[in-house]
């Protein structure tokens, strides 16, 4: 049975339940990189092309960690997960499109890469074919794959449903895999803040300097775009001149627009990766719309390899003070 190396970043935060269940049901062993550490970040900075954004450098770091510990590196090429956008051509950031090649030529001594192309524009049914390809690359039969796939879908669904109940992905994973009871209580919360951004920035507490914990300690109820159903989000597409081209960016934008219209939301924080191409558009657009649509308070935080907790804390505290002041005035 093979050891499958899975980097704990990028799409991991939303799709890990699917992957893990699939591989384990096929009796493969999963080797997952630990949550981001300084060492992983440093390795990533060393391995990746120096003009890359932080998340891509981090990805290199996680892959480098796994290089001598696994038989395969699981790095599917995410091309599209739905037919969406003005021309039905929604895809992922170009760096996702070239990711398997970037690591193949960027990092020495890698084991075989599972770089199956994921293109679901033709429909969700394509996903089964994708998993057939993955399964056969690691030597499983059609029957085995079929069983593992349907089980994986179920677990993923369970995970997704937890998100819709406003549970954050890391906790939802804990519930699904470690059967920890859900223990979210918002009784003491006096503010509700929507955080938008890419899952690999929002839920990697190393790279965002513990932003979520910080907010929780401040008695803030947190919402993110990943707690919204596709249907809810896609309603926002019509309110824009044109959709963006990238799945994760569209989710962040639609999520932001949705939360702007919600009376229970006090403010929006956009967490963006320093020097991220798509975010240069996302950030300004959401900022302008927030002002135009409701005068919704908006804070943008850019994270990079030098982001310190102190800096983030100061900005968050100032933002929260402003929100509380604003609320008490009314």
């Amino acid at each position: 049975m093979a050891k499958i190396g899975i980097p704990r970043t990028l799409a991991y935060f939303l799709y890990y339940p699917l992957w893990k269940t699939f591989f384990e049901d096929l009796n493969h062993e999963i080797v997952i990189s630990p949550p981001t550490t300084r060492a992983i970040l440093d390795a990533g900075v060393k391995e990746a092309v120096n003009d890359a954004c932080i998340p891509i450098k981090l990805y290199h770091g996680h892959v480098a960690y796994l290089a001598d510990k696994a038989d395969y590196i699981f790095c599917p090429r995410l091309v599209s997960v739905r037919k969406h956008g003005d021309f039905g051509t929604e895809t992922f950031c170009p760096k996702f499109l070239g990711l398997p090649d970037m690591i193949r030529f960027g990092i020495d001594h890698l084991p075989e890469i599972i770089d199956t192309r994921v293109d679901l524009k033709k429909g969700k049914k394509e996903l089964f074919n994708v998993f057939c390809e993955i399964g056969s690359q690691i030597g499983n039969t059609h029957e085995e794959i079929k069983r593992a796939f349907s089980k994986a879908l179920k677990v993923q669904k369970q995970f997704d449903n937890l998100l819709y109940q406003e549970i954050l992905p890391p906790e939802a994973m804990d519930i699904v895999f470690n059967h920890k009871p859900a223990q979210v209580s918002h009784d003491n919360c006096d503010l509700t803040i929507a955080i938008i951004g890419y899952p690999y920035v929002l839920y990697d507490s190393y790279i965002n300097a513990g932003l979520i914990r910080l907010l929780e300690k401040e008695n803030v109820k947190i919402l993110t775009q990943d707690m919204l159903s596709d249907k809810t989000m896609n309603r926002q597409a019509k309110t824009l001149p044109k959709s963006l081209f990238w799945y994760f960016s569209n989710r962040a934008v639609y999520g932001g627009l949705h939360f702007m219209a919600r009376p229970d939301v006090d403010g929006i924080i956009h967490v963006t990766a320093f020097a991220c191409g798509p975010d240069s558009l996302v950030d300004r657009m959401v900022e302008i719309e927030a002002r135009r649509r409701r005068g919704m308070p908006y804070l943008s935080i850019a994270v990079d390899e030098h982001t310190g907790e102190a800096g983030v804390r100061t900005r968050i505290e100032a933002f929260l003070d402003m929100l509380r002041y604003r609320r008490d005035k009314i």
Binding site: D51, G98, A275
Partner: peptide
């Protein structure tokens, strides 16, 4: 262009 996404991918290869 600085931070040009596709050219960064190209540059890494």
């Amino acid at each position: 262009p600085f931070a040009c996404i596709p050219e960064i991918v190209a540059k890494s290869i």
